[in-house]
Deep mutational scan, measured.
Amino acid sequence: MPSETPQAEVGPTGCPHRSGPHSAKGSLEKGSPEDKEAKEPLWIRPDAPSRCTWQLGRPASESPHHHTAPAKSPKILPDILKKIGDTPMVRINKIGKKFGLKCELLAKCEFFNAGGSVKDRISLRMIEDAERDGTLKPGDTIIEPTSGNTGIGLALAAAVRGYRCIIVMPEKMSSEKVDVLRALGAEIVRTPTNARFDSPESHVGVAWRLKNEIPNSHILDQYRNASNPLAHYDTTADEILQQCDGKLDMLVASVGTGGTITGIARKLKEKCPGCRIIGVDPEGSILAEPEELNQTEQTTYEVEGIGYDFIPTVLDRTVVDKWFKSNDEEAFTFARMLIAQEGLLCGGSAGSTVAVAVKAAQELQEGQRCVVILPDSVRNYMTKFLSDRWMLQKGFLKEEDLTEKKPWWWHLRVQELGLSAPLTVLPTITCGHTIEILREKGFDQAPVVDEAGVILGMVTLGNMLSSLLAGKVQPSDQVGKVIYKQFKQIRLTDTLGRLSHILEMDHFALVV
């Protein structure tokens, strides 16, 4: 994948999101292997301009796509893939009243899908469409860049269908997702969380590099694949309309690839034109409109599966009536509230959605109805927002919020430890010299600072030695090549209790 991002070429006709291997024109390309080798690009942008032909009021008969309808489940399912879809609609009884809503608040519980998330729908649909058009064949390999849930859905379907599955996901995604993927037989590649989507090191860039190296491999490409919004247009939206008897006044959905909100909203605009569509985008993402909503100094966020630093091709923002931004604290607070007060075992993005819903639905009156999409299960986040310690460490809970008995030293300040200034190293000294210094002084790690004293990161003896043994660096290389740029900081005025929580999850903390 090139470091400079080429513009994806656009073909003359058809839909841009065809499933299957992508040609340089962004659509299915038939021909000899030699032709494909000559024409197939190194990668295709996940934010390529959409060429979708959908228009409100256009006859369904003019759609270029294969459409399906929700099917009634048999008493005995032939395999677990038949437990994807037909998820329950559940009334939220307490939270709406707590925040003064007059309307009825309903939750579409997508964590009841077989793999635990709304992404099971698009995973199965992308595979079925690729099999139907002859792209996927027995023994082929599926590769997908994902925040985890699409990966789980694909790995689940691949396990049943017999495909090899490789999932490329950023490091910030939970260990629970990784464990589930491994249990399903998927191979996992992790990428830096802070890598831009168009960087060769991003999950998108690495996935395309693997595709170019592995024979008979395919990126189904949830960011561009029409099967993504079509899955929701054909099934999720129809289920909502049936469950609500066609009567709903507002739908609120958090947005990642945009397939969920695009597919549902398009069908609702056709069948229930008075329904307002509300999009939820986390602070630090750029999906919301108008652009002024996205202006923030924050560039990272903890909530998973929603928000991006690019506009995915499948996201149709014209069908969203209003956007709201959400933050991590309210997302996790509301997710825990949904679990504790409503018994809905949902993930953090569901918290984002409901946090926005109780604001947006203030305009609705008694007798009206708001539906929220709860995308995934708490299963993926047992060591994250479900953990009091994690919430404390991230600053989303305060010590006084917890009532468990603490040891005698818990409320003492870090400054009472009488710490001395640490050994520091410059980023320009060599790895070999740094190892000598650390061994001589008896230290395992040291902060790396520039000549102005600005902290650049941390270097550890173990990481340097393993990097040297693996051949990633040489003793003569500058130590700046092996620094940890993500590390926890703590102030002298913070409590030892807070430091204790940090050290339970990290090997060190830097006192500043």
Rank of each mutant, 00 (worst) to 15 (best):
E201Q: 09
A207F: 00
I95P: 00
L220A: 05
G274K: 11
R190S: 07
D238Q: 03
S202P: 04
K271L: 11
H232W: 00
S50F: 02
Q243R: 11
N216C: 14
V90G: 01
M169G: 01
C244L: 04
T5Y: 14
D129K: 08
A186Q: 01
P49T: 10
P16A: 07
S50I: 05
R209H: 05
H17I: 13
A8T: 10
H66T: 10
Y223A: 01
R51S: 14
P273S: 11
K39V: 08
K247F: 03
K211Y: 06
T150V: 02
N93S: 15
Y163P: 01
S73T: 14
Q222A: 01
A48T: 14
G100S: 07
I84L: 14
H65R: 02
A130K: 00
K247L: 11
K82D: 05
H203E: 05
G57F: 09
T260P: 02
I188A: 04
Q55A: 07
L154V: 07
C244H: 01
K98F: 05
T193G: 08
F112A: 05
R51I: 06
A157Y: 07
E131C: 02
V118D: 03
G96I: 09
I84A: 09
R45A: 10
R91Q: 07
L28K: 07
M169N: 00
E201G: 15
D47M: 04
K98L: 07
C52Q: 00
P64V: 03
S117A: 06
K98I: 14
D35V: 13
R266T: 07
S61Y: 13
A226C: 07
D140H: 05
L154N: 00
G274A: 13
A71Q: 11
F99L: 07
T235H: 04
Q7I: 06
P16E: 09
L136V: 08
W54T: 06
H65N: 04
P16Y: 12
G100F: 12
R91K: 13
E4W: 12
G11P: 05
Q242G: 15
K83M: 07
S61I: 03
I166A: 04
L42I: 11
P273H: 08
K177P: 00
D234Y: 10
A265K: 05
K267T: 08
K82Y: 11
G259Y: 02
K172S: 04
S175C: 08
E176I: 00
R45G: 11
S27W: 14
S147G: 06
